[in-house]
Amino acid sequence: MFDDLIHVFVPRTYKLSNGKIVKEKVSKSPYIIIILILMVIGCGKIVGFNFSQLIKRGHFFFDMLKKMFPCNWSYWPMMKKAMLDTIIMSILGSVIGCVVALPVSFFLSANFKISKVITVSSRIVITLFRTLPIMVFACFFQLLFGMGTFTGTLAISVFTFTICTKMMYEYIETVDMGAYEAIQSTGASRIKCIWTSIWPQVKGYFFSTVLLTLETNVKSASILGYVGAGGIGIVLDSQLSLRKYSNLGLVVLVMTLTVVALEFLARYGRRKLSDV
């Protein structure tokens, strides 16, 4: 028993019949598992993980659901505009962010040997911004542009821009440069070479990136209202503080259905695009 246990860490050696000694490959996984377990315990301590409390009070979670459903359908006319705003903000934000990201990502790809200093420093700046959650952008734009959908759209655009740029330049760097070289050899300028040889290869990926960001943006746009950046978040917050749970139920239902519908549409679109 103990023998087996120790061999989790110390590789076994076998002596074959022809006298050769074979050593088992050292496995890293037991160490990784121990580190993971220690991390889980440590993190559990920090967040005050309390399983018994969850069991004891778990029914509150479902109480809330029960209060929300069946929902109050007559609330729909009051929330219609806010929901539409959220969807349109996401669509506009995704499209604007990605369209701006496209030329920038060509500029930042290592393929075209544009000044290394500029490329690397711009990449660092974009990476720094990419680490920030969308809410931070919303808060900052709200200071400058005040409350409303414009702020929200801007926040989504910038957020999308940082993500789309990275996805695109990483993809562009994997693209076959042969055609680019061929067109370059005919004496065409760099921008013409890019548009004729690289863009046809990346456009399918670009359009599916737009759909992908749209999908995630609709989900994250719902929190923007919390910081005054327009959309359904405001309604959610107000109905919650008014304790109008059945109204809240409808809001949540519509939000869920919207995300589901968009996910289906986006998946359908991406499948159609896979051969473009």
């Binding site: 076959d176 042969g178 055609a179 070289e181 061929a182 004729t196 040889s197 046809p200 290869q201 399918g204 473009v276």
Partner: peptide
């Protein structure tokens, strides 16, 4: 390797 734009 011909170096054509394959998707066109």
């Amino acid at each position: 390797s011909f170096n054509l734009v394959t998707k066109v």
